[in-house]
Simulated assay, not measured.
Amino acid sequence: MGSASSGRTADARDRDGEGRARNARPRDGLGRPLPYGAAGVERQPEGVVRAPEDSVTEAQALLGAGKPFHAHEVFEDAWKAGPEEERALWRGLAQLAVGLTHSARGNVTGGARLLRRGAGSVREWAGLTGRERPYGMDVAGLAAWARELADEVERDGAAVDARARAPRLRGAS
């Protein structure tokens, strides 16, 4: 049974034809759900297969716009659609974007933890493959950015500005 405030019932949940959850609720720029009927930001389409370079370019545009949650969706698509040997890279990048999302939402513990996990993943991937600049990305710089931001978030205990703290994927952060 739905809540009195939403006016929605259990039968009206957002589901596709096969019964899988498809949350159509509007969201803000950090991916937080808003009340039904509220104006939200345009959702990032899921399941889009892009060339890796296009994934990096699109994710960078979203990060620069202060939408790390949406950038995470792009990285997740690359992680799921890409070759097995690159999945750790894309998963690590998704973790960095989610870490920034949580840090911008004020979730100190979750943000710092995901930033460090993502930093470790991208550095480990580069170490295993010998590829320090996959698709032009500076993985060493991204790992350093993430560790520095994690330290800052824990030290200050306050939400960060996602746009101001967005990394540059292909250059110094």
Rank of each mutant, 00 (worst) to 15 (best):
L169G: 08
R50E: 12
F75H: 08
V139K: 08
E53H: 15
G47W: 10
P83E: 10
W79L: 03
L100D: 03
R50T: 07
A61H: 13
G66P: 14
G157H: 08
G92R: 00
R117K: 11
L63Q: 07
A78N: 13
V139H: 06
A172D: 15
G171C: 04
S121D: 11
G111P: 12
E53L: 14
V160N: 12
A158G: 04
L62T: 10
S103H: 14
W79P: 02
W90V: 00
G118P: 08
L63E: 07
W145C: 01
L100R: 00
G111Y: 09
A81L: 08
R170P: 11
R91F: 03
A140N: 09
G110R: 04
G130I: 13
V122Q: 00
P134N: 11
A59G: 10
R147S: 11
G141Y: 01
G127N: 14
A104M: 06
R105A: 15
A59C: 07
E53I: 10
V48N: 08
Q60N: 12
L93S: 02
E73Y: 12
A150S: 05
V153T: 10
T129P: 12
T101W: 00
L93C: 09
G141M: 02
E46H: 13
S103K: 14
L169H: 08
A164T: 11
G47P: 03
G130M: 14
L142C: 03
Y135P: 03
D151Y: 03
L100T: 05
L142Y: 05
K67R: 15
D161A: 13
R113H: 09
L62V: 11
L93K: 07
G92K: 00
L89G: 03
A159D: 11
A162L: 08
R117F: 07
A97M: 04
H70T: 07
D138A: 04
V56D: 04
R123M: 03
T101A: 03
R133P: 05
L114K: 11
L62D: 06
G130L: 11
F69I: 08
L128Q: 15
L93N: 07
E85N: 01
R170V: 14
L62I: 12
P134V: 10
E73W: 11
A104T: 13
A140I: 11
A166T: 04
H70C: 06
A158F: 10
G82A: 05
G106H: 01
A126T: 10
A104I: 02
E152D: 04
E124V: 05
L114A: 06
G118R: 09
G64Q: 01
T57E: 15
T57G: 09
A104E: 03
Q95G: 02
R131D: 15
A146G: 02
K80Y: 13
L114P: 03
G99C: 04
A164N: 14
E86R: 01
R87N: 01
A65N: 04
N107M: 14
R155L: 05
H102F: 07
G120N: 05
P52A: 14
L93E: 09
G118A: 09
V74M: 05
V48K: 07
S103T: 14
R131L: 15
S55E: 02
F75Y: 15
R163H: 14
W145T: 01
H102A: 03
